[in-house]
Design a protein around this nucleic acid. Structure first.
Lengths: 230, 230
DNA sequence: TCTCATGGCGATACACCGTATAGCTCCCCT
DNA sequence: AGGGGAGCTATACGGTGTATCGCCATGAGA
């Protein structure tokens, strides 16, 4: 019996490794959000059966961790930053940019400690940039505070962005156009300060608002880093 | 044929309303985390078929929104706060306490705009406490910055707490005891600053770290609220 | 009092999910 | 040439959210 008589194996199965799995998962998430990532779909994109992935991955949550760590590679600082402030500001902005490229990152940010190699490398680089400016505990507090700020800010920004996209209205347009539920709420008069804020507030670009809050927080940190141990 | 001869309907079906559904869902989440909340399980807890809930709720995500708004009721300030700083500090601490009572809140915080009645009421109270201290835009920026901080800080705290619980080790014990993966990473010598931080850092109570960072951020806000429009 | 409409409820069903298990097939080493 | 082991696949289980539909009980109208 020649090779021609016997049918070729249905899948000429390409070797496959963790990296391809992570890349496929990220592609799916970029296209359709985290909800579009399923073990079956990732496998399908690699011409593999679902169970094949479990040779490289132990659980779906672990796949999420790996995806996050992969993105942390994009967040790593390119060159050595000028000073600590530039280091922290850069970290914040690079994280934000990564989350705008991969919106699903906002769903995962801060949800689990970032202990992958790239996550650790980012932390290392950040701590190194603040090294010696104050005692270890103060430095830790500084990094944690700034991280907490930009994590929270990024999450809110992405949440608002999705809401706008879903309703087709910007936050500012709400009150006028239709904001079916919120408008009615504001009209009840039970939220005067909020109404005034929505009415009189200037609509400011998300990046500006992000950068402004960040500068405030950095100022606060500066006050503790220069003085020895406030 | 008397009433006694005819068997009672198997489920004496209690009327049921949104509040009971939300309460049941929260109870499930408190016990087993967000993952333990399924439409079927919530319904079962109310002696109802799954489809019954869809008369009161349109989607599972909406149920999550309702759960969050219910918890915002616990976050509402009890009495009128002394000054703006007390208002913001109180808000932050009450949110944190709520998240410690309902850990699943950390998974949802900042994930979607809080537009329910209680969420709006919290925002209203907060804005009211800052009213007139600066122009509307500065006040908005202040509230957003503080909210971003405590949202991010709470998420991280809960994430760490779960990690500790899962490994049975505190963050400090990692390096010594076994931290299967992280210890090896630190041992590679590729993360000197991080290693030093882990080694030399003082283990500080989560609440203290939370409060410290919060005070820093509040100081930063104070600098903009007292000066008119920095 | 009898009849009919209606609206809420339940059962059923569908498509999909994560993953445990077990068997098969192919390759390498002896 | 034969045996062992590794890696892949098929199957299966117990769950998920929710669309659809048919029933029954109730209240209204005659």
């Amino acid at each position: 019996m020649s090779v021609w008589d016997r049918p070729a194996p249905p899948n000429p199965p390409v070797p496959l490794d963790r990296g391809q799995i992570i890349a496929a998962a990220i592609a799916l998430a970029d296209e359709g959000g985290l909800a579009a990532v399923s073990v079956r779909k990732v496998a399908a994109r690699l011409n593999a059966g679902p169970m094949r992935l479990y040779g490289y991955i132990s659980t779906k949550d672990q796949l999420f961790d790996l995806m996050v760590d992969e993105v942390y590679a994009e967040i790593l600082p390119g060159e050595r930053p000028g000073d600590w402030r530039e280091a922290l500001r850069g970290l914040a902005h690079r994280t934000r940019q990564a989350a705008l490229r991969h919106e699903w990152l906002a769903d995962l940010l801060g949800g689990r400690p970032a202990l992958g190699p790239n996550g650790l490398a980012v932390t290392e680089a950040t701590l190194a940039a603040l090294d010696g400016l104050a005692d270890v505990d103060t430095v830790m507090r500084a990094v944690e505070t700034v991280s907490a700020y930009f994590t929270g800010a990024i999450r809110r920004e992405v949440a608002d962005l999705r809401a706008e996209r879903a309703t087709g209205l910007s936050k500012r347009e709400w009150q006028r156009a239709s904001g079916p539920h919120v408008t009615k709420m504001l009209a009840t008069g039970r939220f005067p300060a909020l109404s005034r804020a929505v009415h009189d507030g200037t609509e400011v670009a998300a990046e500006v608002s992000f950068a402004t809050g960040l500068d405030w927080v950095l100022d606060a940190v500066a006050a503790r880093l220069t003085r020895p141990a406030g």
